[in-house]
Design a protein around this nucleic acid. Structure first.
Lengths: 224, 224
DNA sequence: TGCGCCGCAACGTTGCTGCAATCCTCGTCG
DNA sequence: CGACGAGGATTGCAGCAACGTTGCGGCGCA
């Protein structure tokens, strides 16, 4: 479990990090909205703990952007502003919970657990690269909401690449997940599938490309 | 939206009922655990507001039974016992939120909205794709208000596809929900059902099509 | 007993897929 | 600096597995 803490006070961050660590949770720390956005783009988080008072704006403004990026992530807002109106506003902005400072760490942990408990059902496991959206649950790829009609092998290739988006997938790994451990292949069929997939991605303007690294493997990335 | 309030104080109940009514929510009132259980069995609720102090026991004891009955329902606990320990305990018992009395009605409403927003059970009781309306509760399909008279297997196929509308349903998944886990099928009966279903959907002009993805499965989508 | 759903199987059809031949690209070494 | 080789890309093709369709017989149900 990996959470993102958006909070400018270092003290609070280290304290929470320690507390969460005891429950095998990883806490990434972003001290500003900008950092938070960058972190969200680059990593996959299971939840967000959000302070409102940040050097570059109100934390609440992050929520719509989080929802646009990955709709299902639970968001807990922490704040010194604890009036009823503030709380109502925070919740209606899309926060899943709202906790006023000072709070007990125990309670925060319990509320995180409560949210996590119910989130996995919803979290649509999807990856976004360029205009491409890969839905791991539905096992399908979309471009601009348009379904990419891919046959089995090509789908498997894209799925594995999307799962490790941006990082290199070794040729052997790819072969393994496209064919079985036992199924063998005695030709360049894999290359053929990659080739056909490339054409379809380009034709639909998916904004992604399959980059090949000689002697190593492939990786999926936004096209320039 | 229909909520169940489990609370023995009549005053609180009427006040909440009035407040929720203004947001088009229906509030059922159960003054005790027994009443609550009866109500849960007889009706379908989208959420539960639970007081702890009840004439026949602690409200928290209801949670496991609720989860057993309908696992996904959001539960908000209201209580006068507002210590951190109590809150942690309530949340860890399975509550989704915990609000200490006295509280502002506005905040309760906001928290209800936040929970409803992410509750998968709100997931419409009916699905609409093209001119087709599938009613999951009544287990029937309609086109232009006209009932589609489908035999059992075909209905199961359509139901499963409609439930995941637009997303791919793997062949194995479909087999599992149309036949049992144990029931086996040794022919292409599934294809046959799909075929017959397709014809009926086309004949009635439902505006939907069952698209097949070779080697993967099927998906239901509006026809072009 | 009649009707209709269902599993089954036969057969037609489609289009994915592995293969291989050919072309391309890049790094390396003489 | 140019040629060569290895790894990669592309594409046509043929086989075949997966899917579509249809008719039949049995079984359950009214």
């Amino acid at each position: 479990m990996r959470l993102l803490l958006v909070e400018d006070e270092l003290e609070m961050a280290t304290a929470l990090s320690a507390a969460l660590g005891r429950y095998d949770m990883i806490l990434d720390h972003a001290p500003s909205l900008d950092h938070a956005l960058a972190a969200l783009v680059n990593h996959v988080h299971d939840g967000i703990i959000l302070d409102r008072q940040l050097p570059d704006g109100d934390g609440l403004s992050l929520i719509p952007r989080v929802r646009a990026l990955k709709s299902g992530i639970p968001v807990i807002v922490l704040t010194a502003r604890g009036t009823v109106d503030e709380r109502v506003r925070g919740l209606d902005m899309g926060a899943d919970d709202y906790l006023a400072k000072p709070f007990a760490v125990e309670e925060l942990l319990a509320r995180i657990r409560a949210l996590m408990r119910r989130s996995p059902d919803i979290a649509p496991m999807t990856a976004r690269i360029g205009k491409l959206v890969f839905d791991f649950d539905g096992r399908q790829a979309q471009v601009n909401g348009q379904l990419l009609d891919l046959p089995r092998r090509e789908l498997l290739v894209l799925e594995t690449l999307a799962r490790r988006q941006g990082r290199t997938v070794q040729r052997s790994t790819l072969e393994e997940s496209v064919y079985g451990y036992d199924d063998e292949i005695q030709s360049n069929s894999l290359d053929a599938h990659v080739s056909r997939l490339r054409r379809k991605l380009a034709d639909t303007g998916a904004g992604v490309e399959i980059h090949s690294i000689r002697g190593v493997g492939y990786l999926l990335r936004p096209s320039p």
